[in-house]
Amino acid sequence: MVPVSALPELTVRAPAKINLHLGVGCPRPDGYHPLVTVYQAIGLYDDVWVAGHSSWEVDVRLASYIRDTEIPRPGDNLVDKAAELLAAHHGCQRLGSVMIDKAIPVAGGMAGGSADAAAALVALDRLWDLRTPDNVLLALAARLGSDIPFALVGGTALGTGRGEQVEQVSDQGTWWWVVVPAEEGLSTPEVYRHFDLLFPDAPADPAPAYGVLTALASGDPARLAAAMHNDLEAAALDLRPDLSDLIAEGEEIGALRGMVSGSGPSCVFLCASGDHAREVAAGLTDRGCPVILVANGPVAGAHVVELT
């Protein structure tokens, strides 16, 4: 077997996330909102390719439905920050060539930047032959962002704290989703600020996720549809009233449930099967939605897909 350190390049794939339950409490003294959330990784992916190089460089290729104006400036990308943190932790140089192939909607409430960071941690750990223990990699991920530990873990998981504390949960279903990205993104901090404005008396302890956890264990799409919950949805819909019409259209077409994904503005629609999801997607296309994505879940977290 070729040693990992001798591999000249590799590609790591990381999935988008949706929140089946998102309970939000009032801000903590550190400014973060306490969360109780149920994450699910779905089959929309960003790929991060890395190779050895004498300096550090990052480039991005975008799916046709993602605008380049939505991408962070060079140096501000979470991949740059993940690489810097991993290199600093091990006392090594940040060297390498990185290509990010983005298909997860940007600023859409689906944690595309977090997926990229998770993929970079896994890829660079292998490229640099650091052999970082899983628990250390998760701790580094938590320092980078609340959703990044889940992007490493994948599957379906309960998130607590500010979302960075994750544990796998029982999930007996294969769930089918129609995802409708918005043409213009929403700032997550802006949505949280609007939540605070709308709900100044939000409880310190977020709403629990018992209903969603029970539905997942049952494997019944109708039960999951009835249990899905997002405390940030009201704030997102108040900022973007057009999303209410979109959700209503999707449910009228036949989706079991439509909901804003995380902080939005992407909307997700739960369907009973793959065929049902394709029917709903076709109906939304007929209603004029320019981009419709179909995906199932749960899927694996950040993982190597190519070694050359």
Rank of each mutant, 00 (worst) to 15 (best):
E9I: 01
L10C: 03
L10I: 09
T11M: 09
T11G: 05
T11K: 08
R13A: 06
A14S: 14
K17S: 09
K17V: 06
N19E: 05
H21S: 13
L22S: 02
G23M: 09
V24C: 06
R28C: 12
D30I: 02
G31Y: 02
V36R: 11
Q40S: 10
Q40E: 14
L44T: 00
V48K: 03
V50M: 10
V50W: 01
H53I: 00
S54Y: 07
S55Y: 02
W56Y: 11
V58R: 05
R61H: 12
I71K: 05
A82V: 07
E84Q: 14
H89D: 14
Q93L: 14
L95V: 10
K102T: 01
I104M: 04
P105R: 11
G109D: 06
G112I: 05
S114H: 08
A118V: 13
A119H: 02
R126G: 14
L127W: 00
W128T: 06
L130N: 08
R131V: 06
N135C: 03
L137P: 01
L138E: 07
L138W: 01
A139L: 05
L144W: 03
D147H: 04
A151P: 05
L152D: 10
L152F: 10
L152R: 05
G159N: 11
T160Y: 03
G161E: 12
G161S: 13
V166L: 12
E167M: 13
Q168N: 13
V169Y: 12
T174I: 12
W176C: 13
W176H: 15
V179S: 01
V180F: 07
E184G: 04
G185Y: 12
G185I: 12
T188P: 09
P189F: 13
E190C: 05
R193F: 10
L197K: 14
L198M: 15
L198P: 02
A202D: 11
A202M: 09
A204S: 14
A204R: 14
A204K: 11
Y210L: 06
G211D: 14
L213V: 07
L213I: 05
A215D: 04
R223P: 02
L224D: 01
A225Q: 11
H229G: 03
L232F: 01
E233Q: 15
A234C: 03
A236R: 02
L237P: 01
D245K: 13
D245V: 14
I253W: 03
G254H: 12
S261V: 06
S263M: 09
G264N: 06
P265Q: 10
S266T: 12
S266M: 03
C267R: 09
C267V: 15
V268R: 01
F269V: 13
L270G: 07
C271R: 08
G274T: 07
R278Q: 15
A282R: 13
A282N: 12
G283N: 11
T285C: 10
T285P: 03
C289W: 08
V291P: 00
V291E: 11
A295K: 00
V299H: 04
V299L: 02
V304W: 00
V304K: 02
V305T: 13
V305Q: 02
E306G: 00
